[in-house]
């Protein structure tokens, strides 16, 4: 039975998580714009607030005030539900992310498996958006993302299994505790796993150079071509939340999570996460986009063999 006190706690936790997600997404949007601008020797947003920090809020207000356009011929239910199908899994993943020693919503004993399972359902939303929009570019984008995520799930999971061999547990907190002696990235076989993870996770969340579902230059905006206003904003928030999630997992699995000297745990955790996010942004604004068949080829011919070989070597080391 749910008592009143536990209900209050639940509401507080949920609002804290949602507050953090929106604050983080807004910060990331501003930061991404700044990083991209400075890489391109521009300034980026400068007008709203100090160096444009309030720009995401201004954008959000603009998107909220926009007319909600429903194009003719959309598959109504599918089209309406798609943004929620993308956003909700992205938010749900936060349940098992350890921000600090005791700062975790629920330390599930299948934590990492839960996160991976729940985030990969986000693909439904993308595919629904692509299908329901009744737009050829969206359809192509949706089809691409389905193929892409299925392929990249495999090296992603194998690289995580490599970590699990060393940690011996699926619980996120226990994985952090297992890194008490040294960060997992310092282990040579996990070092490889880290890169495999980062690359396939980038593909999972559709970021450049694997941003095929929304490939600007050929598919206009891919699966969200027809979306505007708040629905578009939901896709946007989901993208940045997903990026935070994969970086948080990388920080937890490979960089010791919230562990670190001097500073409190959550600070270390955020520093590590945002460093990885910065690298992802840096990569995004540097490289060209791969083509769809090369993307598949890369997953099956390069990442999967590497991660498999890596897993075998790691297993051999542990058994020895």
């Amino acid at each position: 039975m749910v008592t009143l006190s536990s209900l209050i706690v639940m509401v507080l936790v949920v609002s804290a998580v949602l507050g953090f997600i929106s604050a983080s997404a807004m910060f990331l949007i501003w930061w991404e714009r700044k990083v991209s601008a400075h890489i391109q020797t521009r300034f980026g947003p400068m007008r709203v607030g100090w160096h444009g920090v309030l720009q995401p809020i201004a954008d959000a207000i603009k998107l909220l005030c926009k007319e909600d356009i429903v194009p003719v011929g959309v598959d109504k239910w599918v089209w309406w539900l798609a943004p929620f199908f993308v956003t909700v899994p992205a938010v749900m993943a936060f349940v098992a992310i350890p921000f600090g020693k005791n700062l975790i919503v629920q330390d599930l004993n299948l934590g990492i498996l839960y996160i991976i399972a729940i985030t990969s359902t986000g693909i439904f939303g993308i595919f629904m958006a692509g299908w329901g929009s009744n737009n050829k570019y969206s359809l192509l984008g949706g089809m691409r993302s389905a193929a892409q995520i299925i392929s990249y799930e495999i090296p992603l999971l194998i690289s995580i299994i490599t970590v699990l061999l060393f940690s011996g547990s699926l619980s996120m907190q226990k994985i952090v505790t297992a890194q008490a002696k040294y960060w997992f990235i310092l282990n040579p076989s996990l070092f490889v796993a880290f890169f495999v993870y980062i690359i396939s996770a980038t593909a999972e969340v559709n970021r450049a150079p694997f941003d095929l579902p929304e490939a600007e230059s050929e598919l206009v905006a891919g699966f969200h071509t027809e979306y505007s206003g708040m629905k578009f904003a939901m896709f946007f928030i989901a993208e940045y939340t997903n990026m935070f999630t994969i970086s948080a997992i990388a920080a937890t699995l490979f960089l010791g999570g919230w562990r670190g000297p001097l500073l409190p745990g959550p600070v270390w955790f955020l520093i590590k996460t945002y460093t990885i996010i910065f690298v992802l942004m840096w990569v995004r604004w540097t490289f060209p986009r791969v083509r769809v068949d090369q993307l598949m080829g890369f997953a099956w011919k390069v990442l999967t063999p590497i991660s498999l070989v890596n897993l075998i070597i790691a297993g051999w080391f542990i058994l020895k």
Partner: peptide
């Protein structure tokens, strides 16, 4: 790109 990131905007 990193070199350009740290050079001032023009």
């Amino acid at each position: 790109t990193f070199r350009n990131l740290i050079t001032p905007a023009i």
